[in-house]
Computed example of a mutant assay.
Amino acid sequence: MDVNYRLLVNNTTSFEVTESESTKLNAVKVAESNFHVLKDSKPYKAEIVSADFISKKYTVKINNNSYEVVISNALDELIKSMGIERGKTKVVNAIKAPMPGLILEISVEVGQSVKENDPLLILEAMKMENSFLSPRDGVIKSIAVEKGNAVDKGQLLVEFE
């Protein structure tokens, strides 16, 4: 059975491609993310600039022109038509200690804006340092601990606005 894919380019142009059509594309990898492609006897220089595999979004440069491409299959289209967005999770508003330990370092202040994956604090537990990163973009509402504090499992550490 041939799988169908929908490619949305720059949020304006949509293409339908089958898996068998994509395997007929003559592409040779020339570097880590660079390819030489022949399509209808025409050569193209292709580079994958960025790839987000979870949301299936890619930035591709073809002959030095950049394109944003979103790839979806029948299941993705069904999920979207049902109003369910893939990869969306509930918003985290508080970070709690997953285990008892000692606060070694606090890298943020109340009122500070943070981006996803910014370091928040370091908790030492069982002789290991556990670095806590921000789960989302946001502003620090409160910090319930201080450097040197011993914390219990489930204790509030950082709260977001």
Results as ranks from 00 to 15, higher is better:
I143L: 07
Y58G: 04
I103S: 07
Y58E: 06
T59W: 06
Y58D: 05
D152L: 14
V91A: 08
R136F: 03
A94D: 03
L123R: 11
E146K: 15
G154S: 07
K42L: 14
E32G: 02
L75H: 01
E124Q: 03
S55N: 10
K141S: 11
V17P: 02
V110C: 04
I54E: 02
A97Y: 07
T18C: 04
E32A: 12
Y67M: 06
G83W: 08
V139R: 12
D40L: 13
P43Y: 09
V3K: 15
T12P: 01
V151M: 01
A27E: 03
I54C: 00
E19N: 12
S33G: 02
L102V: 00
N117M: 13
L121I: 12
P135W: 03
E47T: 10
V158I: 15
V70E: 12
E77I: 01
V91I: 13
E105N: 15
A31K: 09
E68H: 10
T13R: 14
V91C: 00
I103M: 08
V69W: 07
E16M: 04
H36W: 06
M99P: 06
P98I: 01
E116G: 06
E161A: 10
P98R: 02
N93P: 04
A46S: 13
S14E: 14
S142T: 11
D40H: 09
K90T: 03
V91P: 01
L104H: 03
P98V: 03
R136Y: 00
S14G: 06
V30N: 05
H36D: 14
N93E: 09
P100N: 11
N11D: 15
